[in-house]
């Protein structure tokens, strides 16, 4: 079984005078989260979809998804966590409790606010996760990355060729993922940081194989991003 876990639990309130989480704001004719979900509805490799929503917006999320054609896909909405890593753990526990976890099961996780994910990225994530421990979508960075210990001065400039920007989807063999979480919890490792999941994997020497992302697979987290995303959807004549 291949599951898609859509991470929509972040409050994401970075829009001025906007009290609704970003994933529910309109992009083109539909809310961002619906645009994102539709890419998973049409993907023939995805069997079930679990959406992790903010607690107070869970019912709203269910209502919203209910208004659109799910194209035959089974979709459940659960309460997630502010931290992305903790939300993934919540999804894993939900799958375990409801359907059980089998050896070949795969969980693909994706940010609800990345609606420009492509079918290629989804398919390659699944294929790659089946061959390795996990797959991570990544892009080379256009900007030079600076390291600063104090947030004021430059303490290091890592070589650009070694710098990649992480996108989603990130995809895991479910059995391995569950074991990794359990190990981490035994060691009292916090799951509050967004990057913690990849760190747990690298700490255990597990392989996260890259899948090529795209610059267009942008994360919409500000009013500027939303304006750019809407502009991208407008037909261009030249």
């Amino acid at each position: 079984m291949t599951y898609a876990g859509i991470l929509a639990a972040g409050a994401g309130v970075k829009m001025p005078r906007q009290d609704m989480p970003m994933q529910f704001l309109p992009l083109g004719e539909k809310p961002i989260i619906i645009n994102t979900l539709e890419q998973f509805f049409i993907n023939t490799n995805i069997d079930k979809i679990v959406v992790a929503a903010p607690e107070s917006w869970k019912q709203f999320t269910e209502d919203l998804i209910g208004k659109y054609d799910k194209m035959g896909k089974e979709v459940v909405v659960i309460v997630g966590d502010e931290s992305k890593t903790a939300s993934v753990w919540t999804i894993v526990k939900y799958i375990e409790a409801l359907w059980g976890i089998n050896d070949n099961d795969i969980l693909l996780t994706h940010d609800a606010v990345r609606p420009f994910v492509t079918q290629r990225m989804i398919d390659e994530n699944i294929e790659t996760a089946k061959r390795y421990d996990a797959a991570g979508t990544a892009m080379t960075t256009n900007d030079t990355i600076l390291v600063s210990e104090d947030g004021i001065t430059v303490s290091d400039i890592p070589p650009k060729r070694k710098m990649f920007a992480a996108q989603t989807p990130q995809t895991f063999k479910l059995k391995t993922l569950e074991a990794t979480f359990k190990n981490a919890l035994k060691q009292n490792i916090t799951l509050s940081m967004e990057s913690e999941l990849a760190r747990l994997y690298t700490r255990e020497k597990k392989v996260i194989q890259f899948v090529h992302g795209e610059y267009s697979n942008m994360k919409i987290i500000s009013s500027y991003d939303l304006e750019v995303a809407n502009a991208l959807l407008r037909e261009r004549s030249t």
Binding site: K30, F41, T118, L232, L233, R236
Partner: peptide
């Protein structure tokens, strides 16, 4: 849903354009 189309803009120049695709009642994807 968001779809991508790869158009020839001019000689030897192909660009991707993202646009909304609406599925009609009697249409398939």
């Amino acid at each position: 849903m968001i779809g991508r189309i790869y158009r020839l803009m001019d000689t030897k120049r192909i660009e991707m354009i993202q646009r909304e695709v609406n599925l009609g009642l009697n249409e398939i994807l």
